[in-house]
């Protein structure tokens, strides 16, 4: 019996000693890379904090914040009024922090000769009114449309800015993340998809939309039509000087901006451009 007690006491001690401060981030897969990079950078300079990142979708991030099961909700869209109401009802006051800007490039397979589409053409393609690349000046191929899951902020941005709330045709394939959209497009000649700016590399081709190429510049100028801010929501503004405060203001520092840029997003504040 005595041994048991000793073991229990030791367990409790280990438990209490090793209780680190933690920051729990939940939400969008689009904001995910920023959150992950911030988390690792933050943990490398603050050894006593464990930052965890779940990428389960903007909606889930909001839900977690409302239920106080996370400290930061990473969201690629703004909170909806229902979510606001629910959080206030739960005693949670959401505060938005815009941590980066993002464009939503329309991507196709690099072998696709089409270079430019108008927003209306994209809408028609996704509604199922245009089903062949021939109709928009490409080769004779059946278009394979790829969309993000309906739970994602990326989908809602696309739905609002491109679809103008029209319904996406039922043939459309839904995938769970930006990376998966790119993976589907890079392996499918006839595919069209949309993903965050940070997810475009040389294995896919970003199209001009209404004649404007998605780039950091056109996004921050606001000329590229499908662009949006990326948010992190906290419950009230965090206590100054706390770990959470330092984390949520990271994007304003030079290093934070460099990380945002390095991953392929557009920093909100413009810091001096050095080329090398």
């Amino acid at each position: 019996m005595k041994k048991m007690f000793l073991i229990i006491i030791m367990l409790v001690m280990v438990f209490s000693l090793s209780a680190k401060d933690k920051i729990v981030i939940d939400g969008s897969t689009t904001v995910g890379p920023i959150a992950k990079a911030f988390a690792e950078y933050f943990m490398s300079i603050n050894k006593d904090v464990n930052v965890t990142v779940s990428e389960s979708g903007s909606g889930n991030g909001a839900k977690s914040l409302v239920n106080s099961t996370c400290n930061i909700a990473a969201m690629s869209r703004f909170m909806k009024d229902k979510e606001f109401k629910a959080s206030v009802a739960n005693g949670v006051m959401p505060v938005a922090h815009v941590i980066a800007l993002d464009g939503l490039p329309i991507i196709v397979h690099p072998s696709n000769p089409v270079k430019n589409l108008s927003v209306k053409q994209i809408r028609d393609i996704y509604m199922g009114n245009i089903t062949n690349w021939k109709a928009v000046g490409g080769p004779d191929m059946k278009i394979v449309t790829i969309s993000r899951d309906t739970n994602s902020g990326t989908y809602e941005t696309f739905h609002k800015l491109v679809m103008k709330k029209q319904k996406i045709g039922k043939k459309c394939e839904y995938v769970g993340s930006n990376g998966a959209v790119r993976a589907r497009v890079q392996s499918t000649n006839a595919a069209i998809g949309y993903a965050g700016l940070g997810f475009v590399d040389n294995t896919v081709k970003a199209l001009k939309v209404n004649g404007i190429y998605p780039s950091k510049k056109t996004v921050s100028l606001g000329t590229y039509p499908i662009a949006r801010p990326l948010y992190m929501f906290t419950n009230t503004y965090p206590k100054m000087g706390s770990n959470l405060y330092r984390f949520i203001t990271l994007h304003l520092s030079k290093n934070g901006q460099e990380i945002v840029k390095g991953i392929g997003f557009v920093p909100v504040t413009n810091y001096k451009k050095t080329r090398r």
Partner: peptide, 13 residues
Amino acid sequence: AGDMGEADHVTGS
């Protein structure tokens, strides 16, 4: 698995 991430209106929706 995919849509649970949404559940965007907390409960009741």
